[in-house]
């Protein structure tokens, strides 16, 4: 069934602020990917994009109970499954 929604499988940097996704995996096994895994970006982790910096990069994400800033170049290495039920706003504090 064709869908107007954005692709389900995307990279972290394509998540718009307010969108969330579940990490599927990382691009490679280099030192950069290793460090991103150490930071908690492993399969199954839920990540929410909170906001972009005023100049458009980097982006602030929320995962595992903390907030992490990543640039687009690093975000592009993380494959995520977009969560369609994500809350539309970022301000819905629990």
């Amino acid at each position: 069934m064709p869908s107007p929604r954005p692709a389900l499988i995307a990279t972290l940097d394509t998540l718009a602020p307010g969108e969330a996704g579940i990490v599927e995996g990382l691009e490679g096994n280099g030192p950069v990917d290793q460090r991103l895994r150490d930071l908690g970006l492993v399969p199954g982790t839920k990540v929410m994009a909170l906001r972009r910096a005023p100049l458009g990069d980097p982006t602030e994400y929320e995962l595992r109970g903390y907030r992490l800033c990543l640039r687009r170049t690093e975000g592009a290495r993380v494959r995520v499954r977009r969560e369609l039920a994500a809350a539309p706003g970022t301000e819905s504090a629990a």
Partner: peptide
Amino acid sequence: QGLPFYMELP
């Protein structure tokens, strides 16, 4: 390329 850029916002 060195380390990736990452920074925590406490």
